[in-house]
């Protein structure tokens, strides 16, 4: 849970953005990067699952392991555990034979299939390493979805438990120090005001609190529908669909007016349903948890433009 005295979200060094699939995790990660950069911070944004959605959101073209400047003060990369292992071996083990180990991908599959947490540690390790070397003020991670984030974040602790000796044990120590420090690391859980994402968010917060000593910095509720009517206006709207009113309206605005009213009724119903889910979410969150609301954009723009609108909304929420 958001620790007392923890710094604001954008003041941290490492932010993991997670959430149920389909809620807009990547958009929020990209928007946080853009917002932080607009406030003068040098940002690295990293896509973990290599689906290419971050590249699409930033309109950056394909991303690779090697960070590349995509916007002012923003570098972007795509995680690749094989490259991460290669870099690790080069930096830490200083093995001259690395080149002769054979195709690293095959070797890695060997180890990763057998030893739990190897892929996760290579991912989290690289991100912690970037924090440690300090080329960037902030590392934003478009992280694993809520089903896997606990496994990903807890990998250094799990490995630390499993591995009794060796270099890895040494290295998991500084990783856990960075991860467990609320001044440096925070998790952002993205959700929608819909039943399943809300339930999954509350469940995830419990799991994180139980299993991983990483601070949850904020919950972002994406795609909040606008309120259409005040109570008085709602009363007027409800009566617009009565036969006499509808006839009067249709006479002036055409016979498809009823369809327009149907659409508004659907919008009201959807909003009402989401508002209830939002209340459920807020009731389940600890009162100290910062909750940021991002409005539904109605797909009017996509890609970078949409992300910038979301960044603006987040900026207003963060103040």
């Amino acid at each position: 849970m958001s620790a007392a005295g923890a710094p604001d979200l954008l003041e941290r060094r490492l932010v993991f953005v997670t959430g149920k699939g389909g809620v807009g995790k990547t958009t929020i990660a990209a928007a946080l990067a853009i917002l932080a950069a607009s406030r003068g911070r040098r940002v690295l944004v990293c896509e973990v699952d290599a689906k290419g959605t971050l590249a699409a959101a930033l309109e950056s073209g394909p991303l690779r392991f090697q960070p590349r400047t995509v916007l002012l003060r923003i570098d972007a990369m795509a995680m690749n555990t094989e490259d991460s292992l290669r870099e690790y071996l080069k930096l830490m083990v200083r093995l001259p034979v690395v080149a002769r180990v054979g195709p690293l991908a095959r070797t890695l599959d060997f180890v990763a299939d057998a030893a739990p947490g190897v892929r996760e540690i290579l991912t989290v390790g690289k991100l912690c390493y970037e924090v440690r070397v300090g080329h960037y003020d902030l590392v934003v991670v478009d992280a694993a979805a809520s089903g896997h984030i606990v496994g990903q974040l807890s990998a250094p602790w799990a490995i630390n438990e499993l591995v009794q000796v060796g270099m890895v044990r040494e290295q998991t120590r500084w990783m856990t120090e960075i991860l467990a420090d609320p001044a440096r690391t925070g998790v952002v859980v993205v959700t929608n005001p819909e039943e399943l994402p809300v339930a999954e968010t509350l469940q995830l917060l419990d799991q994180l609190a139980d299993a991983v000593p990483v601070d949850v910095a904020a919950v972002v509720v994406n795609r909040v529908l606008p309120e259409l009517f005040t109570r008085d206006e709602q009363a007027v709207f409800d009566r617009l669909r009565e036969p006499a009113a509808l006839a009067a309206l249709s006479k002036r605005a055409g016979r498809d007016t009823e369809r327009v009213l149907d659409a508004a009724a659907l919008a009201v119903a959807l909003r009402r349903e989401r508002a209830e889910n939002l209340l459920d979410l807020q009731a389940g969150l600890p009162p100290s948890m910062p909750t940021l609301l991002v409005p539904e954009l109605f797909a009017r723009s996509q890609g970078k433009r949409a992300v910038m609108q979301v960044a603006d909304a987040l900026g207003e929420e963060l103040g």
Partner: peptide, 27 residues
């Protein structure tokens, strides 16, 4: 024109109509 049927203030009805139309455009 519909204020008489609805017995509600025309300004409020006007706001509702604009909201209805904008919501249609959004969707």
């Amino acid at each position: 024109a519909v204020a008489a049927v609805l017995k509600a203030p025309p300004t409020r009805i006007g706001r509702v109509l604009i909201e209805v139309a904008e919501s249609f455009d959004n969707y």
